[in-house]
């Protein structure tokens, strides 16, 4: 069942369109930067963007920073919202259940497909932007220090290329995990309504609310519980030494969101009348 759900996702034109959009944005930005060589001043614009002009290997980090706030969560919310409600909309939900596929199994398979999509998205963004970065900005820093190719990390110490790649992989996975909370909310809403669009919008509404509250000092009391609170913690992978505190909290928080909303989705779906 998990296999067929993954196959189903891969055979959807929509999956590929959203991946193309996700990879296209960093490509577009790279094109402008490559042509004009005008870097945003350090500390402004997406993180890392000022650093990449001198070294392309860091471009995936900049690309993740670009897609993280909007593109990625929107595509995850759309896929998650579509998972059950989309089946209901096409009339296939009842035929899947009659096949029979147990309701719990179906939900687990949908979650697996969602995780598959998130992984595919972050890997695609990372790999494509790595290639773009090398091609446009080159792998060697203009002012290379002799002996090793060094990249300046946020804290100012040097990192070798393998270290950069390892940290990029970690950051990529962390960004992927950060999306699972939104995905789980969308999946839950998808079992509540038969409208895929409604479920996706609901998840996005939760997301926007969370982002606004995160930036609101008056809401400091609830900050630690907001799903987007630790989204930017992946930057800590590029500090020397790595700052684990926020990363750990971020992972734990996403795990809690997934557990809670998956349980709610299951409780709702397993007892619901299928009347579409």
């Amino acid at each position: 069942m998990i296999r067929t759900e993954l196959v189903k996702m891969l055979r959807r034109p929509r999956t590929w369109v959203s991946l193309m959009l996700l990879c296209g944005l960093p490509g577009l930005v790279a094109a402008f930067l490559g042509v004009t060589k005008v870097a945003p001043p350090a500390g402004q614009g997406p993180a890392f963007l000022s650093a990449v002009l001198s070294n392309g290997t860091l471009y995936p980090a900049a690309a993740l920073a670009m897609v993280l706030p909007l593109f990625l969560p929107v595509s995850v919310a759309v896929v998650g919202g579509d998972s059950v409600a989309g089946e209901a909309g096409s009339g296939m939900l009842r035929y899947l259940l009659l096949r029979p596929v147990g309701r719990t199994r179906l939900l687990v398979a949908k979650l697996a497909a969602l995780v598959g999509f998130v992984l595919l998205a972050v890997v695609a963004v990372t790999l494509s932007s790595y290639a773009i970065g090398i091609a446009v900005f080159g792998a060697k820093p203009a002012s290379a220090v002799t002996g090793a190719s060094l990249v300046t990390s946020m804290s100012g110490t040097g990192l070798t290329t393998p270290q950069v790649l390892l940290r990029l992989a970690c950051a990529m996975l962390y960004v992927g995990v950060s999306m699972l909370g939104v995905g789980a909310i969308a999946l839950f809403l998808s079992t509540v309504t038969d409208s895929a669009l409604g479920a996706a919008l609901g998840a996005l509404a939760a997301l926007v609310t969370s982002q606004i509250l995160v930036s609101l000092d008056a809401a400091a009391a609830v900050h630690p519980y907001l799903p987007t609170r630790y989204w930017l913690a992946w930057i800590d992978f590029f500090r020397a030494p790595v700052l684990w505190h926020d990363i750990q909290r971020g992972l734990a928080l996403q795990a809690v969101y997934v557990a809670v909303f998956l349980a709610a989705a299951w409780a709702n779906f397993a007892t619901r009348d299928i009347t579409n």
């Binding site: 069942m1 196959v7 096409s90 009339g91 296939m92 035929y95 899947l96 596929v101």
Partner: peptide
């Protein structure tokens, strides 16, 4: 019920595999 973007044969095969 069927997935509109797939052929009838692919639909049945997918349902069968599920």
């Amino acid at each position: 019920g069927a997935y509109g973007h797939l052929s009838g044969r692919a639909n049945l095969a997918l349902l069968d595999a599920s």
